[in-house]
Design a binder for these strands. Structure first.
Lengths: 174, 174
DNA sequence: TCCAAGGTGAATCGGATCTTCCGCTTCTGG
DNA sequence: CCAGAAGCGGAAGATCCGATTCACCTTGGA
């Protein structure tokens, strides 16, 4: 593959990641192309159709999300601090986008479904750990906690450490 | 106006209110009609076009919202309790819808714009009062607080007293 | 009973996207 | 440096989807 082609492909993925995260799904191929400074045709050279593009982005984001949670969990920090950092990480990139894509109507391909379950499981596990540690209130189920995160993080214009996120975390702590 | 016509008009407004609240704008006229158990044509007999329908619902919801805030504010309750009830009221009906409609792209007609400002002002005033009372943390600006409410309340499927709302309120209290 | 107000929903209209395609441009191996 | 493959651009055409219309059927109520 030619060097410039690889560069362009990367740029497409990066821009799509960003645009989906900040404006939700439904961004048109043309906007994606413009943002990346390329022609629409180029998107189609790299991805057979919209779905393929969305799929690549979603799965890669989920994969990196799962990796990040694992990495942070392995650190020698209080579970609460791990949670905080996970939330920060989510706000900065993937989850928001993944959720926005997930809302996009298409049927979920099995691979992505599995990844989503994996991330969900990791998050719920983390919540449980934080509660066991005693730093998070116990009257919220892991599933509810995850919903709360989504609400705070998957918001157009969410930024790490903004008021919504701070209030949510404070409301969750004991 | 014939009795059945009046009945149908009311049913349209009620269903639209509900559908917009729970599924956001972008619900099609056909869905609206189906939900109301009527034909599409009937919607058009009552409202010249989609915009007129949306407009009627939005302004009436905003009006009742403002009235509700005023009514609750006049009660002899702590400002915190007033806030709690306002949030509950929002979750049960209008704001969610109004915001979801506001996101719908159309330019905001002046009348609605004025109403939105009014509601916004009332909310910010209430927040200020709660903070002065000392029951809400002071490191959140009224505007941020309103954004937090929106986030918690304008969510597909929000229900009064659910985990998201509870956590948000706890996070806001001192 | 009569008939105008009211209701219906298939068909039409339009706007917005997605995709295709072919001529033009940019790499890169030799 | 050059030939030709790889890549790019973006107008044009195919599609999709929801808003709106309209010719015809129902029904409230005088």
């Amino acid at each position: 593959m030619r060097a410039d082609a690889r560069r362009n492909r990367e740029r497409i993925v990066a821009c799509a990641l960003e645009l989906f995260a900040e404006r939700g799904p439904g961004v048109s191929m043309e906007e994606l192309a413009r943002e990346a400074g390329l022609g629409v045709g180029t998107l189609y050279r790299h991805f057979p159709d919209r779905r393929a593009l969305v799929e690549e982005i979603a799965t890669s984001a989920l994969r990196s999300m799962a990796a990040e949670i694992r990495a942070l969990s392995a650190k020698d920090l209080s579970r609460w601090d791990v949670l905080t950092q996970v939330v920060t990480h989510c706000t900065e990139q993937p989850l928001a986008l993944v959720k926005s894509i997930a809302d996009g109507g298409d049927e979920i391909p099995p691979e992505r479904h599995a990844l989503q379950n994996e991330v969900d499981g990791l998050l719920r596990g983390l919540v449980k750990a934080v509660q066991d540690e005693g730093t998070m209130r116990g009257d919220i189920s892991p599933a509810e906690a995850v919903e709360i995160f989504s609400t705070a993080v998957c918001r157009p214009g969410a930024r790490a450490g903004d008021a919504v996120t701070r209030v949510m975390l404070d409301g969750l702590s004991t």
